[in-house]
C-alpha cells in the first residue's frame, strides 16, 4: 500500500485536492535541487567531454573519448566490477541480516518502541570516518581482536583483518543496516497480525507464513530498502579507503583520486557519470524485475 492510499483510507477529507497556490510550497526545494544538483551535474557532464593533458590539465573539447577509454581500460573495468560486486553482495547480506530484526521491530508492541527505533538509528550518529577509525583499532595486527586471540592461544600468529575486502563488507553493512531495518520495519508494521494467524489457522507453518504471506507483503519495503542500500554501497568512500587500504579500489575513491591527485577533471567526471549510469541501470532494472515478480499478480 502506498502512503497516499493509506491516507485516503483513513480520512476522506485529507484527499481533497490542494489549491493551485499550494504548488508554490515546493518551489524552494525545486530551486535548491535545480541550482545545486542539476546545474553542477550538467557542468560535470560538459567537463567529462573535455580532454586532459598532463601539462595544460583541461583542454576544451567535445568528444566521448574519455568514456571509450575508461570503458576499455582493464584498470577501470576492474574497479567498476569490484564496486558493483561489493554493492550487490553488501545489499544481499544486509537484507538477510536486517529482515529478522525488522520483523521483530515491526511487530514490537512496547512503550519502549520509539527508544528501540532511536537505538537503531544511533549508529548513523557516528560518522563513517570515526567509525572506520575505530574498526582500525580493532582489526590491525596489533588490534584488539588479534591481541585477544593470541593471548588466548587460539591462533599462532596475527590474522590479516585490515585492508581486506572482508573488512570493507563488514564496514559497509554496519553503516547501511539501519536504513534497511527501518524501511522494512515500517512496512511490516502495516501488515495486520491477523494475516499470520489466518495462515497458521489454514495449516501454514512458521516458515510458510513467512514465505507466502509476510515476505510478499513486505516486498515494497524490501525493494525500497534494497535500492537505498545499493545506492549507498555503490558510493561508499570512507569505509573503502580506511578499511580497504591503498590497493583496494572502489569507484568513489577512484573518482576522488582523478580529481585531487591526478588533477584530471575530465576523467574524474567521466568516471562519476559511469558510476551514476551503472547505479541507475541496476536500480531501474532491479525495480522492474521486482515489480513483475510481486506486483503483477
Amino acid at each position: 500500500m502506498t502512503l497516499a492510499e493509506g491516507m485516503r483510507g483513513k480520512g476522506g477529507a485529507s484527499a481533497k485536492a490542494a489549491s493551485p497556490g499550494t504548488a508554490l510550497l515546493v518551489l524552494p526545494a525545486c530551486l535548491l535541487v535545480l541550482g545545486l544538483l542539476i546545474g553542477p551535474m550538467l557542468l560535470m557532464f560538459r567537463i567529462s567531454l573535455n580532454q586532459f593533458s598532463p601539462t595544460q590539465l583541461m583542454i576544451e573539447a567535445f568528444s566521448f573519448g574519455n568514456y571509450a577509454r575508461a570503458a576499455a581500460d582493464p584498470y577501470y573495468q576492474e574497479i567498476i566490477l569490484t564496486t558493483l560486486g561489493m554493492a550487490l553482495l553488501c545489499t544481499a547480506l544486509t537484507l538477510v541480516i536486517a529482515f529478522p530484526a525488522a520483523y521483530w521491530l515491526g511487530r514490537l508492541q512496547s512503550r519502549w518502541k520509539s527508544l528501540v527505533v532511536i537505538a537503531t538509528l544511533f549508529p548513523l550518529l557516528v560518522g563513517n570516518v570515526v567509525r572506520s577509525a575505530g574498526w582500525m583499532a580493532l582489526f590491525t595486527r596489533e588490534g584488539l581482536i588479534n591481541t585477544a586471540l593470541l593471548k588466548a592461544h587460539l591462533i599462532g600468529e596475527p590474522l590479516t583483518l585490515m585492508y581486506t575486502p572482508k573488512a570493507v563488507v563488514f564496514g559497509i553493512i554496519a553503516v547501511v543496516l539501519p536504513y534497511m531495518i527501518l524501511t522494512i520495519a515500517s512496512v511490516i508494521e502495516s501488515i495486520p497480525r491477523d494475516l499470520e494467524d489466518a495462515a497458521a489457522n489454514l495449516g501454514a507453518s512458521g516458515f510458510s507464513q513467512f514465505w507466502r504471506v509476510i515476505l510478499p507483503l513486505s516486498a515494497p519495503g524490501v525493494a525500497a530498502g534494497s535500492i537505498l542500500v545499493f545506492v549507498l554501497c555503490m558510493n561508499t568512500y570512507a569505509t573503502a579507503v580506511l578499511l580497504g587500504g591503498p590497493r583496494f579500489k572502489m569507484m568513489a575513491p577512484a573518482i576522488f583520486d582523478q580529481f585531487v591527485r591526478g588533477n584530471n577533471w575530465p576523467m574524474g567526471a567521466t568516471l562519476a557519470f559511469m558510476l551514476l549510469a551503472v547505479t541507475m541501470s541496476f536500480t531501474i532494472f532491479g525495480s522492474i524485475a521486482f515489480a513483475r515478480r510481486y506486483r503483477a499478480r
Binding site: 495486520p192 491477523d194 494475516l195 494467524d197 489466518a198 507466502r212 507483503l217 510481486y294
Partner: peptide
C-alpha cells in the same frame, strides 16, 4: 476473523 484476514496479495 473479524477483519476477515484475507491475504491481500
Amino acid at each position: 476473523f473479524q477483519s476477515y484476514a484475507l491475504f491481500p496479495h
